[in-house]
Structure formats: C-alpha cells, structure tokens
C-alpha cells in the first residue's frame, strides 16, 4: 500500500471534528463524531430527527460546548477565542436557521444587513441598505420587501431573507440548518438551487443538515450520515446509492423496516 501524497495546507479540511462528544443529562447525543469537510466543498449531514445533527453544527459555532473532542476551523481549534477574536471567528460564518430566526423587531433590510450595521464590519447606513437590497435580489426577492417586517412574509420568503442574511457579509463558511423544512416542493427546489448556486459562486465551504433527500442530491458534494451519535457513513454523493451500508440504504429509501428503529 502506498501512502497518499502530502495534501499540503490548501487541501487541509476547512472544518474538522475529532471525537466530539456531547450529552444532555443522561442522553448521549454525540458519542464521538469524526468528520472532515474539505475547503470549498458542500457537505450534507443527514440523519433522523433527534440524532444530533443540529447539536454538531452548534458545537462548531460554539453555541454549545462539547463535553469532549476537538473541533478545528481552518486549522485553528475553536472554543478558546474570546471577545474580538471570537467576533472575528464568527464573522467567517453565515448561517441559515431552520425557522429563519429573523429578528421580528427589525425590517427585512436591517435583518439582512445586521452585521453591516454594527460591530467590526459596520458600514454607512445607505451602503448597508444597498448591499441588503443586492443580496435580496440575489435570492429572488424584489426591493419592495426591504421595508416589510418578517411577520409579513410567507415561509418561503422568510427562508430567502434568512439566506440573504447568511450571505450578506460574504462568509467563507455557510451553514444551512434544514433549509427546506416547511416549504412546498417547488419552493424547496428553488431554495436548493439557490443554495447550490450561491455556494459555487462564492466558493464557500458549506455544511447543510437535512433529512430531505431531494435537498441532499441537489446540494451535496459529500454526504455524512449521523446515526446513534457517530458518523455512520461518509462519502461522495455519487457513491451514496451503492454504499452497501444498511443504515444509509434504509434512510435514503425511507423504509420503515431496517436496522434503524422507526420509533425513537
């Protein structure tokens, strides 16, 4: 067996998790997650509800502190930064939340330009608004929605605004938490397409968590399946169908019978 060539710094993974564990009381959600997401690629994490996909994602962002293990972003261990250093760390990320998580006290454009209106990336208000409107256009929304409040928008529009906010400050890494949940199939398709286009054109590293297989095929370069607190299978999306892994097969074909118990 020959050793693979030295990957060098440029092909080092953008995000690496090693032995990440997290329990909530007696419930062991993550039992040693190992995962590497290459720079500029789109990784989709699949798995049933309650398998810890969101927890893993929140551990990377530092919203949840893991009990054990190591998380690196661009070679730097996370979780140690404080103050301005942590702000700089977070400024590299954009995140689309499952329910949009738009600030309902702010109009749409201020949601999109949130990062550009305060803190280290602060711009003049007119410029921030201009960028917000540009990003809204990018996700297919007209400038008319800029002055509406999130509660006045439909679910699909809220998702798009969330997407515009996630990309407003041109992040290097974008997280998508269940981007198509609660949307009709056509709107889900539109969002999937947008995500794929945006990730490609920005050259960003993307991590998506979903259980929507259409989404997986539309967005993913690589797929990882989280089951029972560990990564059950990982590989390129093209190899997903002939993995031979009974857990993955059951999941992607949505069978009630199989090694994964339907009642959790």
């Amino acid at each position: 067996m020959t050793l693979p060539p030295d990957p060098g710094p440029d092909t080092a993974p953008m995000i690496r998790l090693e032995g990440v564990r997290k329990s909530f009381g007696p419930k062991h959600v993550l039992r040693g997650v190992d995962l590497a997401i290459p720079r500029g690629s789109s990784m989709v994490i699949i798995g049933g509800s309650g398998t810890g996909k969101s927890v893993a994602l929140k551990c990377i962002l530092g919203l949840i502190t893991p009990d054990a293990g190591r998380i690196e972003v661009d070679g730097q261990e996370t979780g140690t930064a404080r103050g301005a250093e942590r702000d700089a760390f977070l400024a590299r990320f954009g995140m689309l939340f499952q329910g949009g998580a738009l600030f309902d006290s702010l109009p749409v454009w201020q949601n999109v330009a949130f990062r550009l209106l305060r803190g280290a990336l602060k711009r003049p208000q007119a410029e921030a608004r201009e960028i917000a409107i540009k990003k809204l256009r990018r996700v297919g929304l007209s400038p008319d929605v800029a002055d509406l409040f999130p509660a006045e928008l439909s679910g699909g529009m809220q998702k798009r605004v969330g997407l515009a906010r996630a990309i407003a400050a041109e992040p290097e890494i974008i997280f998508f938490d269940e981007p198509t949940t609660g949307l009709d199939p056509i709107m889900a398709g539109v969002i999937n397409e947008l995500i794929r286009e945006i990730v490609v054109e920005m050259g960003a590293t993307a991590m998506t968590i979903t259980h929507d297989m259409t989404s997986v095929r539309a967005i993913a370069d690589d797929v990882a399946m989280l089951h029972d607190g560990v990564i059950q299978w990982t590989g390129p999306v093209a190899k997903m169908d002939e993995s031979g892994d009974p857990y993955l097969d059951q999941f992607i074909h949505g069978r009630a019978e199989g090694p994964i118990e339907a009642v959790r």
């Binding site: 962002l61 977070l90 995140m95 939340f97 499952q98 329910g99 998580a101 600030f103 309902d104 280290a120």
Partner: peptide, 16 residues
C-alpha cells in the same frame, strides 16, 4: 420567544 425561535443563536452567529 427570541430564544425558542433561535433568534438568540442568530445574534451570536452575527457576532453580537
């Protein structure tokens, strides 16, 4: 309500 709708997490990810 902000907490249960993940708006607080969103604030953190927006460096606030």
């Amino acid at each position: 309500t902000m907490k249960v709708t993940e708006q607080i997490d969103a604030l953190v990810t927006l460096s606030t």
